[in-house]
Design a protein around this nucleic acid. Sequence first.
DNA 1: GTCTATACACTGATAGAC
DNA 2: GTCTATCAGTGTATAGAC
Lengths: 210, 210
Amino acid sequence: MVNQQKDTEGKILDAAKDVFQQKGMTGARMQEIADKAGINKALLHYYYRTKEKLFEKVFEIAFSIFIPRMQEIMLSEKPVFEKIEFFIESYMDLLTKHPYIPGFVINELNRNPQILVNIFEKNIHIKENKLFEKFDAQIQAEVKKGIIKPIDTRNLMTNVIGLIVFPIVARPIIQGIMFDNDKKQYDAFLKQRKDFVKEFIINSIKPVNA
Amino acid sequence: MVNQQKDTEGKILDAAKDVFQQKGMTGARMQEIADKAGINKALLHYYYRTKEKLFEKVFEIAFSIFIPRMQEIMLSEKPVFEKIEFFIESYMDLLTKHPYIPGFVINELNRNPQILVNIFEKNIHIKENKLFEKFDAQIQAEVKKGIIKPIDTRNLMTNVIGLIVFPIVARPIIQGIMFDNDKKQYDAFLKQRKDFVKEFIINSIKPVNA
DNA sequence: GTCTATACACTGATAGAC
DNA sequence: GTCTATCAGTGTATAGAC
């Protein structure tokens, strides 16, 4: 953190991000956010009128960190196999930098799915660029060419994302049960998983006669 | 619900389960639990002295729903391929009946990983029966025989569990983005995924010359 | 913009009657 | 065992001075 001369609004968002992502909407306290930002509670309400509004801002920022890269990769001109490998590589790196975001997003969406609707309404472009349809078209085109096995795109995408995200959100339980709660060992596990997941997925969708 | 003449303690646990799993530890209110159980707050504290203690009880019950079946399947005498297929079948059914538990458990463990340590201390047998070691031994034995590809057991287990659990915990986001928030369509998706996941996993671990 | 002081509602928990 | 009444503490939010 070199740039400590951030403006108040930025300091608040940084502090709010930390507290909300660690404690959740209901567990977070405005006092703790104010303390962490080095200001007082009143100023919090001056910039963001309510806790709810501050939370929504934090959620939106967290959510948006994972969207642009997905669009960029999936709408690029590469073949499917390359896209998937690059997607895994790219998102596993991103998750190393932001390990708390997926759990935060998933948890808050389970408590209040409406948040997602609000985000879509605010950022219509996310829904409008037909990311899924275009990727699906590419998949089915490559299936016809025999480059990959016949496969349902939604199932494939769920698997790719799940294999990337699950070890991060379920870290406490997996690390606890399979790694005797050894943090360093689990970090090493996550690192080697990049290639493992790539191979795992490629193996199950490449044609048998390849 | 035929048996409505449950004792007070049971009614409290049922109500607490609902509220805690939906709102989380910090979002849950003792008043709401009391209302749902048809009693008053004071009686809540008579049975479970504090909110924390009531929560721990609920968490322990939720957690224990998923453990015995896992031990039973993984320590059985079947070959690995059969175990995995049966595991997927069995746990996807279980999750259909208890869809809120995984998100609840994962979220609360992220906020306070210590909970897991407490559970292990209370139920030493979970740690003591060396479930992982035995399953790992079987895997490596079958690898040597050429029945399955060489594979790391921890990575394989993470994948199997992740592919089962992820679509449940991340339901709001996947259903929202890939299924236009259509609940029925997503239920159908989950149903069809059983066979898809089985095939996906088997494909990536069966030897190439099989 | 930033602060101190405070309003006001709510929460977990307890006392005490029955 | 179950209730009503109530307390002490904490939470979000606002008023008003600077």
